[in-house]
Design a protein around this nucleic acid. Structure first.
Length: 930
RNA sequence: AGGCGGAUAGCUCAGUUGGCAGAGCACUGCCUUUACACGGCAGAUGUCGCAGGUUCGAUCCCUGUUCCGCCUACCA
């Protein structure tokens, strides 16, 4: 029954490995049926298959695991579903980079082969992160591992797509969207990151068509797009320009003329010159302005953001300019356009202009507004219940501060562009009949790769396949074989795939088997809590709420806990390029997983980014060691002890530690209930180190180390009992060491993780004992201070005296006398100062206690005098400040009576303390030869 | 431009329904006492960003302000 002695030092790596496989072997992460009716389900924010564990994952998953382990121990049926995300663009980019090294492109492989290649890669390295999560101790049900592109989830995706399409909530249309000219795909609004840059504002002269002397000056940051201008807008009430409205201007560098229109929305009279060029195909505002004024967009750029010869031709650009600009990137074209304008003396001036540039969130390439046919989700109707759910509190966002962030975004949500022109992902379940859509399709075979402009259609045609927005799709859950219109069988599927976040939006229910009404779905939906970082509040959380409510009629989860971003010690965002990443795996092997987990939890203060300094992890590694050594001590002294019945009586230290443990159980539980992981860990740390180890174990020593001590048996029992409970209390945060220690002591059961989480024990809380203990602490600490001041070695026995004027404290003093004596290895006499046997006794004051330490004749009392004087100074200052307050009539009149009373009481006790200190000072004077 | 958050010990951060300002790390001194030097004991450390206001009383509430961070949006 008794286990082998614990190693002298804790070896995290070996211990972690052992218990990880023990847990897996016994399938302890599976949901267990319990008597409790409620369930607790978390779905993991699925990490990308391209990824490996970074510090953000470590934080995110540690917090989830703490919740899951805690609830599981509370006897609630728990399920934590793991999985990974196919991460469309990101993963495709990774594989394309690999291909590039082989001198290949995805086009070289062709779509089918390319996708197979991605699958291969995904299988090879796709689950690295899963292994790492297991190393972190994540107690997910690994048998329920899902992937956003697995069969079941693909089915869910199709069902949702078809239903939303049928209801008109998904549509296809030609819109201006954000386009990444490197990834060659559309992006949604939130996939664009903005970066502040120093831009230039160019002032350009547009001459009136019917009067070469008259002109308008237009200010723009993008001169190269002026070739696509369809109008110049001025404010309809601007007296400077009113009379121009309706006239035509000559568009520089072209043979076109364009109208001057009045537009109050587009034009800010204060900005620039008050005249704005309207380029519908290359600016979101201008696109809308174009619709208001019936201006047809004129696309100048191709998919790689190069000046498209065909577009330039349609724009009637001057021949030589056209030749110069053709196939130049925006970056290269801009100076050429400026040069040409200068030559014609149309450039009036340039000035610096700070502006924000949109970049692709996957590859940081500058995105271009691009006109193309895309699929959209009509988000307005979906947002309404998603707003309501949060407003009414059906879904709680924690910390609450982020609620407004969510609501603000949701209330002015834009339609969601869900089509991506990439190959890796859920291909859109829409097909086209070739015979019905003859005029609406251009397929790869008809485009020339070498010469993208060499055809007479829109530049959009340089996409691999072009389907005009008025083509008629057949949207279906299953692949159709015949056209319902003409009965023809020449069908092909829309080549676009869905935004990765479309399948992620279904994650809380698709992972539970939906659309089947599975038992899992019925038991675990809605999920209890979603734990995620702020960065994906809109990408993911908002969409899950919309889709969850729409498709299941229920909210997807009740609580959303949002944690902060982990930064480095200097507050910088961690990134590989900066070289400041802290790799959690390295830290786990260096300090142990439990130390890292504890660190993560301790830093999870709400609403604040966390700066991770390595010393922090080191500090908690020391904490782990401390626990380990406490266990060794206990094992050493309880080796022969068998778990026995409750002891008949508990010693004073036993009673005290159980009272403090009860208190800690309450604090930790409350903290977890409020998602205050920081507070939970702080209470655990404080209690275990500074109460259990520093005081309780020290107090337990005498009864364990002396032979036949009357408290020995009860103490052994309490030591084991409390330590076992501490392991359970700590287990959710530190699963590995707690399992190891729990298993090393007498126990029943397969694993600590299925034992009950501690609850407060009736009868353990004991305020009297706690007060007694505070007296003990005061005497012990004060005596030690005295020892340090007098340079008396800690192991030299003393003859101590103590007294107090306070009756309760006098009683306490008596109660704890023998414990003080043993902990200080001294004798303690309780007697009034007048009864102390000698004059050479130093009086030290702690509250209303006076402690006497005999002083040898030759001792240097210099330090003591200094200390006492300082104390007197501080107390005096505080006392007179309080005195002033108490004697102020306005204070007595206006402050709460209890506060007045309290202040008076404090004045009284301060005065008493002062008089004790003064008496001590006098005493010192008699001992110090002057 | 708007919104949000932060500014407290040397560092990282708690905290206060307004009434003695706290922890960890680092630092100083003493101690290798059979759980632990990844340790013990003791100690030092603060204009609670700045300026006003409300209040008997403000680090906390209000107003303004300066820095820093984030988010959203964009003015061509």
């Amino acid at each position: 029954m008794s286990s082998p002695p614990l190693d002298k030092t804790y070896n995290p790596t070996a211990v972690e490995k052992k218990w990880a496989s023990h847990w897996a072997e016994h399938k302890l992460f599976h949901p267990r049926h319990t008597e409790k009716p409620e369930s607790f389900c978390i779905v993991i924010p699925p990490p990308n298959v391209t990824g490996s564990l970074h510090i953000g994952h470590a934080l995110n998953n540690t917090l989830q695991d703490i919740l899951i382990r805690w609830k599981r121990m509370q006897g609630i049926q728990t399920l934590w579903i793991p999985g990974t995300d196919h991460a469309g663009i990101a993963t495709q980019n990774v594989v394309e980079r690999q291909l590039k090294k082989e001198g290949l492109s995805r086009e070289d492989l062709g779509r089918q082969a390319f996708i197979e290649r991605v699958w291969t890669w995904r299988h090879q390295s796709g689950d690295t992160i899963i292994e790492q999560l297991k190393q972190l101790g994540a107690s997910c049900d690994w048998d329920r591992l899902r992937f956003t592109m697995d069969e079941g989830l693909s089915l869910a995706v199709r069902k949702v797509f078809v239903q939303l399409y049928d209801e008109g909530l998904i549509y296809r249309g030609e819109r201006l969207i954000n386009w990444c000219p490197r990834c060659l795909t559309a992006l949604s609004d939130i996939e664009v990151e903005h970066e502040d840059i120093k831009g230039t504002l160019y002032y350009i002269r547009y001459t009136l068509a019917d009067d070469p002397e008259a002109f308008l000056t237009v200010a723009t940051t993008r001169p190269e797009t002026l070739l696509g201008d369809r109008a110049v807008a001025v404010h309809p009430e601007d007296p400077r320009y009113q009379h121009f409205i309706g006239k035509q201007v000559k568009l520089p560098l072209t043979t076109r003329t364009i109208p001057i229109v009045g537009d109050a929305i587009s034009v800010d009279r204060e900005f620039g010159t008050g005249a704005v060029k309207i380029t519908p195909a290359h600016d979101f505002n201008d696109f809308e302005a174009g619709e208001r004024h019936g201006l047809e967009p004129l696309t100048l750029l191709d998919i790689k953001a190069r000046m498209d010869p065909l577009g330039l031709k349609k724009a009637l650009v001057d021949q030589d300019i056209l030749a110069t600009l053709s196939l130049k990137t925006v970056h290269d074209a801009r100076p050429l356009v400026i040069e040409a304008l200068q030559e014609q003396e149309l450039l009036i001036k340039e000035e610096d202009h700070p502006m924000a540039l949109g970049k692709c969130y996957r590859c940081k390439t500058v995105v271009e507004p691009y006109l193309s046919p895309q699929w959209f989700v009509k988000t307005g109707p979906l947002a309404i219940p998603a707003i309501e759910a949060v407003e009414t509190g059906n879904i709680r966002i924690i910390p609450e501060g982020w609620k407004n962030n969510y609501l603000g975004w949701m209330r002015n949500i834009k339609d969601w562009c869900i089509s991506r022109q990439i190959w890796w992902g859920h291909q859109i379940p829409a097909w086209y009949c070739r015979s019905c859509n003859k005029d609406h399709l251009v397929e790869p075979s008809s485009t020339s790769k070498e010469n993208p402009g060499d055809h007479d259609l829109s530049p959009s045609l340089t996409m691999s396949c072009y389907i005009t927005s008025d083509a008629k799709p057949i949207v279906s859950k299953t692949d159709p074989t015949v056209c319902p219109e003409c009965g023809g069988s020449d069908l092909f599927q829309d080549p676009d795939v869905l935004d990765t976040w479309f399948s992620s939006a279904l994650w809380p229910f698709s992972t539970l088997g939906w659309p089947e009404q599975t038992q899992d779905f019925n038991t675990f939906y809605p999920n209890a809590t979603l734990v995620t970082g702020l960065d994906i509040l809109f990408f993911w959380v908002a969409r899950m709420v919309m889709m969850g409510i729409k498709m299941t009629g229920q909210i997807p989860f009740r609580d959303v806990y949002i944690h902060a971003l982990v930064r480095d010690a200097e507050g910088q965002k961690m990134s590989k390029s900066k070289g400041n990443v802290i790799d959690p795996l390295t830290k786990m092997s260096q300090y142990g997983t439990d130390a890292l987990r504890f660190t993560m939890a301790s830093m999870a203060s709400p609403g604040r980014d966390m700066k991770l300094a390595e010393e922090r992890i080191e500090g908690y590694r020391n904490f782990v060691t401390k626990i380990w050594n406490a266990a060794r001590f206990i094992q050493l002294h309880t080796d022969e002890t068998q778990p026995s019945a409750q002891p008949k009586s508990r010693s004073f230290p036993d009673q005290w530690i159980l009272s403090r443990l009860n208190h800690t159980i309450r604090e930790v539980t409350q903290a977890l209930e409020n998602y205050r992981f920081d507070q939970a860990t702080s209470h655990l740390y404080q209690f275990i180190w500074h109460e259990y180890c520093d005081w309780y174990i020290e107090l337990a020593k005498p009864s364990l180390q002396q032979e036949n001590h009357p408290d020995a048996s009860a103490t052994r029992h309490t030591l084991l009992e409390s330590f076992e409970m501490i392991q359970r209390l700590l287990h959710p945060v530190m699963p590995f060491i707690t399992e190891e220690l729990w298993q090393s002591f007498p126990h029943e059961g397969l694993s600590i993780m299925t034992q009950p989480f501690p609850s407060e024990q009736p009868g353990w809380t004991n305020n009297g004992t706690e007060h007694d203990f505070s007296i003990l602490q005061a005497v012990v600490s004060t005596t030690r201070t005295g020892r340090a001041l007098l340079n008396i070695p800690a192991n030299q026995p003393l003859t101590l005296y103590s007294t107090t004027t306070h009756d309760d404290d006098a009683a306490s003093l008596k109660n704890v006398q023998i414990y003080i004596e043993s902990i200080l290895r001294s004798s303690l006499t309780l007697a009034q100062i007048t009864d102390w046997p000698s004059d050479r006794i130093l009086q030290l004051v702690a509250g209303n206690l006076t402690i006497g330490i005999p002083v040898e004749p030759n001792l240097d009392l210099h330090q003591v005098v200094k200390k006492v004087k300082k104390q007197i100074g501080a107390k005096d200052k505080e006392c007179s400040r309080l005195q002033d307050r108490v004697s102020s009539p306005t204070f007595r009149e206006k402050a709460e009576p209890s506060v007045v009373q309290e202040s008076e009481a404090r004045v009284t006790s301060l005065r008493q303390e002062l008089s004790l200190l003064t008496s001590s000072e006098h005493q010192l004077a008699t001992m110090t030869p002057s």
